[in-house]
Design a protein around this nucleic acid. Structure first.
Length: 821
DNA sequence: AGCACGCCGACT
DNA sequence: GTCGGCGTGCTC
């Protein structure tokens, strides 16, 4: 018997191994196996039966071990990841790695320690001496750790020689997975002592007070809950030393058991309250009926739920979810990373209870491991999470919801697979005869087009949910403030014009709240010497530095490099360093100056870095804030009844980016942020400051007219044959030297040309930002109207024909790239 | 990816 | 001459 095995390598193939007879019963598809692979051992996953050893022209080796009794990876995930590998042009191993939680791999690890020989026996070159000193400091370390600490490439060959001479000890071990099931010790009275009288007698017979107390506590617990008690809790409560418990166990009075605990971020949350009982309005009910019909059929269908901001899309998801759960099927709810708050989770839990699990990157490895297993074993049937949750191991899938489907965060960048979770969701629903719901107030042009072509069914909710007095909340008025005119009228002394300041002031006086969007963090994006034009640049990236903390710190937004803001120009010694442009901090400063009585909360990546900070800021705003100022993270999903004014400090940020999606993104951002105003009884207003009042994104956002915007934007896309009227892929080349990067890009692109039938190949060109973290970047763009297959074929050919690039040189393929910069 | 094998410069 | 650097190519 032989099996095919997929390995966690960037290789387009599976490897075949012979199964020793003793392991044949265990070697099922989906099981992890330990296999020999070119001098090391790797963990792979069995994908199926392998070829007859007589039919192949290589020597098949036997696998070492089967690591699971039950298959770790459900067969469905094998199929799904295979599709991902195929579509996004990555290896199956890479796709599978994205689907399995960390900690499922065992790998060989070389450990180094000083050998028996004396220090004097070492060669006296610098490298050898550095290694000797390092090993003296770190007993038993790994080769890669040594290399990292010393910042040099000690060759394995040299190490082997030293090992032969007893200078070092070199051992090869299997590294444990860094995550494993967690257990807790529980205590209960041993069987004969469980009756009340036996327990009392036992307690009397003991001499130690602590021992008596332990027995009494366990007896009470047994009487009341019939459950064991956590040892840690007991020790804590009675302040008893472990030795007390130990001696009771020795005497046979108390039994210890190890209980598996399932780590979950939800265990910190209070139990969800009762579900709010809302009746759906007509459009919601219509949408729900359409979903329910397909859910009842158990057949594949994708819906595009186009509901304006505040139209109550979440209630529709929840009602559909309930039906799926009642039918005994499972579901995935995808939300953009930023929207995954405890409130979101609680809202779902209130309706469907403890069947909900959460899976996201901020969870500890242990929590992810346990949650993953709970889902795979069917102990939870619903998962809420960002992008990666689309790969959750759920069986019998009935529904996948992709909320805010237009969000760019659904596309993974690094590392491979560079998949789009929305598109994977549609494919996965298809594979499972499930229903997929894509929801948004501003659908991506791709989804709108798919709806027009009949691939998806569009459901529309064009009105907001009724307010408390039963009237329908209106979308806010949007007013455009032309900054070029404001300047002429001398109404502009900083980032906020007089009319905007005044509007903010009025709202605060009425005890209403204000949202201010400035989609740029820091103080000023650029500083420049007024006398000689000097601009500070990052040492490792080809970008100018952004000033954070006015007068103190300059920071690179690409690599994190920081330095002090100089007080004088280092080039001409002038002290006239001027700040160009505006970040959130600068707006904050102006608000403090102009409206000192207002409580301003700033929310951007800098103030939300810490775990929980996001939530804390929003609570503070809800309780006692006047103004919430922030980057795009304040534009989405927030629902504050008292927000009656939304101000956009600079609507032009990002609008003029040389990218074909810039206009769509700007429209979406403006429409979304506008949707935060006037969501309840109080009417809302939006003020947009701009220097380009005629820009299409603004014109259509002003009237909340998605359909008109889509019509306009689709015409442009069609003319240029951009998605959704064609497919694009981008290939990025990176190398430490400019010439190397250019050479790599040229050679690789040449291979691409060999299969360029019906493909426009643009480039290679230097990337928009030519250097990032010391690497030079080049880029080639592929464009076609002949479908994705054509691009994939060309890319796969080029990769195979070029082979693996030299070390330190990288090629990354991005199928359906969102931006082509 | 990561490791082996194989081909060229600087030291005995 | 050899040691050890690094550049191709293969891994069931």
């Amino acid at each position: 018997m032989t099996v095919n095995v997929v390995l966690p390598l960037p290789l387009d193939q599976v490897f075949s191994y012979a199964v020793p007879p003793a392991l044949e019963a265990d070697a099922q598809p989906g099981c992890r196996v330990l296999v020999p692979f070119r001098g090391r051992r790797l963990t792979g996953v069995i994908t199926g039966a392998g070829p007859d050893p007589d039919d192949v022209d290589f020597r098949m080796r036997p696998l070492d071990d089967v690591l699971d009794e039950q298959p770790t990876c459900p067969p469905e995930l094998l199929r799904l990841t295979h599709w991902i590998a195929d579509y996004y042009v990555c290896s199956w191993g890479e796709a599978l790695k994205a689907a399995l939680p960390a900690g499922f791999t065992v790998q060989t690890e070389r450990r180094l320690a000083l050998g028996e020989a004396e220090a004097a026996a070492w060669p006296d070159d610098d490298d050898a001496q550095s290694v000797r000193r390092d090993l003296a400091k770190h007993d038993s370390t790994t080769l890669s750790a040594v290399r990292k600490r010393l910042g040099m490439a000690v060759s394995l060959q040299r190490i082997r020689d030293w090992a032969d001479a007893d200078l070092v000890r070199l051992t090869t071990t299997l590294s444990d997975p860094n995550v494993s099931p967690k257990t807790e010790t529980h205590l209960q009275l041993a069987g004969p002592f469980q009756s009340r009288s036996a327990a009392r007698d036992a307690a009397e017979s003991l001499r130690g007070d602590k021992q008596k107390a332990v027995v009494r506590t366990l007896a009470t617990a047994h009487d009341q809950q019939r459950t064991p008690v956590r040892q840690a809790d007991l020790v804590d409560a009675l302040d008893a030393p472990y030795s007390t418990i130990h001696s009771l166990v020795e005497k046979g009075l108390v039994e210890r058991t190890e209980e598996r605990v399932h780590r979950s971020p939800l265990s910190d949350l209070p139990p969800p309250g009762d579900p709010p009982n809302h009746t759906l309005h007509a459009a919601q009910q219509d949408a729900l009926d359409a979903l329910k019909a397909k859910i009842a059929d158990a057949s594949y269908h994708t819906f595009l739920l186009h509901g304006i901001t505040g139209s109550g899309k979440t209630e529709v998801y929840i009602a559909a979810l309930k039906q799926v759960v009642e039918a005994g099927r499972s579901a995935i709810i995808l939300v953009p990373e930023i929207a995954l708050t405890p409130q979101t989770v609680q809202r779902f839990r209130a309706h469907v209870g403890d069947t909900v699990a959460v899976l996201h990157s901020q969870m500890s490895a242990g929590e992810r491991f346990d949650t993953w297993q709970a889902l795979r074993d069917g102990r939870k049937q619903i998962v809420i999470g960002p992008r990666s949750a689309v790969l959750a191991p759920l069986d019998n899938l009935g529904l996948i919801v992709v909320d805010e489907e237009h969000e760019a965060s659904y596309k993974q960048f690094d590392p491979a697979p560079r998949y789009h979770a929305r598109d994977v969701a549609v494919m996965r629903a298809h594979m499972n005869d499930a229903v997929c719901v894509l929801g948004s107030a501003t659908p991506s042009l791709e989804s709108t087009m798919n709806a027009r072509r009949g691939k998806y069914t569009r459901l529309s909710m064009p009105e907001r949910v009724p307010t408390t007095d039963g009237t329908v909340a209106q979308l806010p008025e949007v007013e455009i403030l032309d900054l070029t005119k404001q300047r002429k009228k001398h109404q502009l002394n900083g980032p906020l014009s007089d009319p905007l300041l005044e509007a903010i002031h009025t709202r605060i006086e009425r005890d209403e709240q204000v949202l201010l969007l400035q989609n740029r963090r820091g103080y000023a994006p650029v500083i420049e010497c007024a006398d000689c034009g000097w601009v500070p640049h990052c040492t490792d990236c080809s970008v100018s530095l952004t000033e954070h903390s006015h007068g103190r710190q300059l920071r690179c937004h690409y690599c994190g490099y920081t330095r002090q803001t100089p007080s004088h120009c280092p080039s001409c010694d002038s002290d006239a360093l001027q700040r160009i442009g505006t970040g959130t901090q600068r707006v904050e400063e102006m608000l403090a100056r102009e409206l000192p009585q207002a409580t301003v909360l700033r929310m951007d990546r800098d103030t939300t870095r810490q775990k929980g900070a996001h939530h804390a800021l929003l609570s503070a705003f809800r309780e006692a804030g006047d103004i919430l100022l922030g980057t795009q993270m304040i534009a989405k999903g927030l629902d504050f009844a008292r927000v009656t004014l939304v101000g956009v400090v600079d609507a032009d940020v990002g609008m003029l980016f040389p990218d074909f999606r810039a206009e769509e993104r700007t429209f979406q951002l403006l429409t979304q942020v506008a949707g935060r105003a006037g969501r309840a009884d109080l009417a809302g207003t939006v003020l947009l400051q701009t220097r380009n009042p005629d820009h299409a994104a603004l014109r259509f956002a002003r009237t909340h007219n998605y359909d008109a915007f889509a019509k306009h934007a689709l015409e442009e896309r069609k003319a240029l044959r951009y998605p959704p009227f064609g497919n694009v892929a981008s290939v990025e080349f990176r190398a430490p030297k400019q010439e190397e990067a250019e050479h790599l890009a040229t050679q690789w692109t040449n291979r691409l040309q060999e299969r360029s039938d019906r493909i426009d190949i643009l480039g290679p060109n230097p990337a928009f930002i030519q250097r990032v973290q010391r690497y030079f970047r080049y880029r080639t763009i592929l464009k076609t109207t002949a479908g994705p297959r054509v691009l994939q074929r060309a890319l796969r050919h080029a990769r195979a024909a070029y082979g693996s690039p030299p070390s330190n040189h990288y090629v990354s393929i991005d199928m359906d790239a969102l931006d082509l910069l």
